[in-house]
Design a binder for these strands. Sequence first.
DNA 1: CTGAAAGCGCTTACAG
DNA 2: CTGAAAGCGCTTACAG
Lengths: 370, 370
Amino acid sequence: MLEHEATLCRKGGLILGLSMRQLAELAGVSRGTIDRALNDRPGIAPEVRAKILQLAQDHGYRSNRAGRMLRLNKSPLLIGIQMPARNNPFFQAVRAGIEQAARDLADFGLSVVWRTMPGYDSAAQVRQVQELIQAGVHGLALVPIDQEPVRRELAGLAAQEIPVIALNNDVSDGRRLCYIGNDYLHSGRIAAGLLGLATGPDPVPTLILTGSNQILGHNQRVSGFRETVAARYPWIQVEAVRENLDDDALSFSLVMEHLDGHPELRAVYLAAGGVAGACRALAARGLTGRVRVVCFDLLDETARCLRDGRITAAISQEPERQGYLAVKTLYDYLLDGTRPPDRIITKNEIIIREHEDVSEHTAAGQRRIP
Amino acid sequence: MLEHEATLCRKGGLILGLSMRQLAELAGVSRGTIDRALNDRPGIAPEVRAKILQLAQDHGYRSNRAGRMLRLNKSPLLIGIQMPARNNPFFQAVRAGIEQAARDLADFGLSVVWRTMPGYDSAAQVRQVQELIQAGVHGLALVPIDQEPVRRELAGLAAQEIPVIALNNDVSDGRRLCYIGNDYLHSGRIAAGLLGLATGPDPVPTLILTGSNQILGHNQRVSGFRETVAARYPWIQVEAVRENLDDDALSFSLVMEHLDGHPELRAVYLAAGGVAGACRALAARGLTGRVRVVCFDLLDETARCLRDGRITAAISQEPERQGYLAVKTLYDYLLDGTRPPDRIITKNEIIIREHEDVSEHTAAGQRRIP
DNA sequence: CTGAAAGCGCTTACAG
DNA sequence: CTGAAAGCGCTTACAG
């Protein structure tokens, strides 16, 4: 792995690279000077810097994370979290992941400060972000509302070199360190594959319920679905696409209404919320089990629907892990400049009824946080 | 969280518990003495120890992991890994997870030493475990062959207080720190649910191919499957259960033979290996796609079968994560005595064809290691 | 039985 | 521009 065996040192069987101390000895300077060179700090003669950098490269020097992490306890890192729609159970799962990461990293000099709000008001989001900056955060993770005021604010943070992570929802102009969340297009394709697997070869009249046509992720879940259906599952026949605004009552009446005109309905695909409402409508018409239901995110009511056999399957996107990784990724970046990939995509987990059956010791394991 | 606010100290917004240094000041002793009391070391007056322990409890003292982790670089930790069947692609995935963890923890004073072997010879496994002990490992993870010589050896290690993790396969007498792997019974149930979802209501004559009746995990996958089928999916009719010894050639001929007697076959459930062989037999009879195939573990050939539509779905058990967690769990235990649960159960991930479709940025994300 | 020192690898504030 | 010291929290020799 490391190229210059000569400079490796072994301790109790462990092969180590060299430390700043050893590098200092090699270069004949103090450790402070090594630090100045390696970390681009001012107050060092250019030729000394060059020499040290060369030496570091030659010997494969890599900064040791344990040293930095301990050091951070002396001048701790503060990161801010901003989340909209705080009553949404999905975001509560994301939040649980964030809190777990905060606990895990507390010993390593990290602390986390929160701002949450109900709903999706971009002005309020901007205000809370500014509050976090005022509080002195070194980095920020938020579920951005992709509108102009928010984008402008994020551009400002980019200028100040404050790293920002877009969590669960991306911003369209990409002024952020990275995106962590679902690939919505792909998840739509998975949903199609799943419904394809659960149906056919007889025709399957299908209703699509999306949350809002204004939301990119929802649209991508619809188009990913349609694309795959067209390519592989011709028996799935989309009769209509309706917006339910993630609302159960609206979802209920849309399904009822649809059934009036299309009694042959055999599948409902929900790209966003309103799952329980749709299930209620099917139950009201005695169609539970006869009509396949595929949806996203396994929380609360949805889990209950799955256990009751009212849902065929759900596709989950590792919400806790999204939250955990947001904190961890920011921490690593702030610790030693580790650059994450542009997008960190979480899995599309297909959850069926049997996942919810509790076997001996299983439940805890299946629901563990990253 | 911490109860005694009075003794908390704040630094840059971070709320910290107290350190050994502060505890030493409070107790009016040196840090060495604090260490002796807290870590049960000899050479300390009983009443001093008692006083310090009381004080630590009162102030909610918790040892800081960053301190310990850095310290480990001075006298590094060595853990041993023993794996059988080294050519098995499944174990290579586990291995990749172990190697990732080893890289992640190298900065924190961990190094890993390996012994692997072909096949499943318990005498050879015992020998390699002894070699690792000779090499001075502080802990051990292995895929144990659950036979008497191995169990006896593990009992010996338990007596020496060397922590051992059973990876992917448990030992029946439980002489180990913890088990990390699949819940085979549950995974059999998931397989049944999946096949149930992909079939019915017409009868589905089904062939079960298991690896070996000698292997507990395989038997559990069969019984979990049968149990759930009986309870929920009566149209799934098991015509036969045959052993293919994880062998593709045998698997091929068993399916061919079965089809001779049971041309109405509509599903094959593979509880272990030999997937490609079974698929080849179905293809030879022109039954690809007409006969549902559900199997475990997505590697190499199996992944290809899935992409080609020769498999309906596979159930994966996070092999990389199993390996990663084995190392991490041992490390945490050796670092500060963190006790893992008795069993750490990895997920049963249902993988369908659309998971393998590569979307823009998806592939890397879906296959990331923990 | 107890304490003072040194060290793991890093960074910062201070003195020159 | 550079170095020596102190410190993050822990543990281990060593001296008494």
